Simulated scan of single mutants.
Amino acid sequence: MNLTSPLLNKEAKTKFKRWPSWIGYAAVLWSALYGALHLYWLFGGAGYPFENEGMGLFAAMVTYLPAKAGSIVFVTLCLIAIGIGLVMQKRQLKPFSRWFAIAYLWGFSVALLLFIPDTTLIAAMAYAFLFKFDFNWQMLNQIFCIIGALFWMMAAVVYQRKTRHACEYCGRNKDEEPFFFVRWGRLLTVIAALAPLPYALIRFSWALDIPLGVDPQFLREFSSANPMARMTEWVFGSVCIVGGILTLGLIRKWGEVFPRWFPFIGGKRVPIMLAVIPASIVAIAVTAAGFVFTFGIIVEALHPVALGNILHSQGWGAMGPMIFWVPWGVALGLAAIAYYYRRRGRCSSCGRG
């Protein structure tokens, strides 16, 4: 058994490295499964995951659609994606059809990332630092949609590379120029590191019982209703600060080589994905939550009385810092991409580097 395990691991790694050959089929399979789920819900099946449940500003965009309408929309979107995905695997498309396919898949992916998740995903990640775990079917559905979005994004990237005759694995061709985001990586990283500071400042002030941006009565009621309120504020603020510091590692030497004082791994190179994957997960969760909240604020702004009531009862401190979440998430995601392209080595498929 010990002799075959390394061979099995090597075979699994080899198959994963061949991801451009199977990612399109994986995306099609995902759409078939998710489309079938919505077809089930369309005919009255139980477990429809998109319910507002009084979340208000923190509810996902799709919750504003009635259940049957939402299922019809998703069944249609998934069927179109399946058709495009299968055609992309078989033959080259005409220029107009090719760009329509690419635009549709990117639009579908972005919609899955922005319109499906709500604020519970980023909240669950934050509360995990307090050893509080609240995992349910709604959250599993959000994660499943994020996986589908990533599948279709990767499939679209592979197809784009095919159409411009570049390497499907690395995207390089003979006329390779530095990836656009690499030139802006430093600025994007600084923005991503600074963006969570307003939220951290608010949380630290509340932990110190300073009603910054909120009515003192609101802070008292909030603290009395939650015995762990102050600890929660300290943890949330600290997570933002530590996250900002770690983000700077995307442009610092210690983000490429572990410091010498690290036990066992000091002086060794930081695996690229050890930085890219966590940064990407946080970027997706933060962007989705920020989009939901920003959209809610815009809607409430169209009803000044409702917005005025919220501001009067809570204050700008309860909502204002979250407006920075969209630029925070977008900048962090792009900074992670820039880090990856800057550090990637020679392609094992085409040999370019």
Results as ranks from 00 to 15, higher is better:
F100M: 14
G266N: 08
V110P: 05
L112C: 13
T163M: 09
V326T: 11
V182H: 02
G148K: 06
E177K: 15
S97P: 01
L37M: 15
T14E: 08
H38D: 06
A128Q: 06
P278M: 07
E256V: 09
G24C: 03
A67K: 12
M322N: 05
Q89W: 03
C145T: 05
P278H: 09
A200N: 03
L250Q: 04
L140C: 03
N52L: 10
S238Q: 07
N136E: 03
W99Q: 15
I245Q: 11
W22C: 09
G317I: 01
Y40G: 10
G213I: 06
G267I: 12
L7Y: 09
F96A: 09
P327I: 00
Q160W: 06
L212T: 13
G255D: 04
D118Y: 04
A225G: 15
H38C: 10
G44W: 13
C350L: 00
L150Q: 06
F179K: 11
A36M: 14
A225F: 10
Q89H: 12
R186V: 11
T189C: 12
G296S: 08
I72E: 04
V242T: 14
A46H: 12
Y341F: 14
L332A: 01
S223Q: 05
V235G: 07
L332C: 01
I82D: 05
L311W: 03
A195F: 03
G70F: 06
P20K: 05
M154T: 15
R203C: 04
K13R: 15
